[in-house]
């Protein structure tokens, strides 16, 4: 009971800490998406191209791996260990972040999509040469949201796993990654084999099947990333 209580307290404290950290991160995301949406309407003769939904999704792909590189670094973990916390809780809180942040960020892009529509309505009301089309359908929205979420989670989990290993075993991971990259560049057979493996996941799937495949890959990535975190020393 006491142990459960300690764990609960530690988890609350850790999540509070990540909440304060990610408030800044979220503000950066808001800033970027606001900037991109504004420039689309102010500086471009046409606001066509990517809507806020796609802009938000692409930003997730860029920002979340950077965030994962930060939270798995030794200096960041040292900060978290200033208060009682164990490695399971750290890994669990990271996984919660990986699952939660894309959801919040994608939902935020939904708000911006509505704001874009609102801006379009305003522009339409004030000028006779502005037009817009609402291309989202219920099916494509749900499928797009779900698949974007699962792909972002998978990519974020991959970067989390990579950096969790990298900061603990810099030399080994650098050598393995370097060799892998060189093999991809110089050995066409290896490259083709690798691309066909990736293709098996992405080519001609249905949204459900793709989500299932990526969900499984994500679980494997979580398990792989957990290993170095569980074994790490706080230095």
């Amino acid at each position: 009971m006491l142990s459960q209580n300690s764990r609960l307290r530690a988890m609350k404290s850790l999540l509070y800490s990540y909440y304060t950290d990610f408030t800044t991160f979220y503000c950066i995301y808001l800033g970027i998406i606001t900037g991109l949406c504004l420039t689309k309407f102010i500086f471009s003769s046409s606001a066509s191209g990517s809507s806020a939904l796609t802009v938000g999704m692409v930003n997730c792909f860029i920002l979340l791996p950077i965030a994962m590189a930060a939270i798995t670094s030794n200096s960041e973990l040292l900060k978290k260990f200033s208060f009682p916390v164990d490695r399971d809780l750290v890994a669990l809180s990271h996984i919660m972040l990986i699952l939660l942040l894309p959801l919040i960020m994608l939902l935020t892009s939904c708000i911006f999509y509505l704001l874009e529509i609102l801006a379009s309505e305003l522009l339409m009301a004030t000028s006779d040469n502005f037009f817009y089309s609402w291309l989202v359908t219920r099916g494509s929205f749900l499928a797009g949201f779900a698949v974007s979420y699962i792909v972002i989670v998978a990519v974020t989990a991959l970067s989390w796993m990579f950096f969790a290993w990298f900061y603990r075993y810099k030399v080994i991971v650098s050598v393995v990654t370097g060799t892998f990259a060189l093999a991809l560049i110089y050995f066409s057979e290896f490259r083709e084999a690798f691309l066909s493996l990736v293709g098996k996941v992405f080519v001609n799937p249905s949204p459900g099947l793709l989500s299932l495949k990526l969900g499984t890959i994500t679980l494997v990535l979580f398990a792989l990333g957990y290993i170095p975190i569980k074994r790490m020393e706080v230095k």
Binding site: L2, S3, S6, R7, R9, A10, S17, T20, D21, S75, L78, K79, S82, P84, V85, D86, R87, D88, L89, K230
Partner: peptide, 22 residues
């Protein structure tokens, strides 16, 4: 090591604690 029950009873103060930007 990695035992939250004991860790809850330990506090370490040194010059590397609390380096957060908070």
């Amino acid at each position: 090591f990695d035992n939250i029950r004991v860790l809850s009873d330990i506090v370490l103060m040194d010059d590397e604690r609390y380096t957060d930007n908070s």
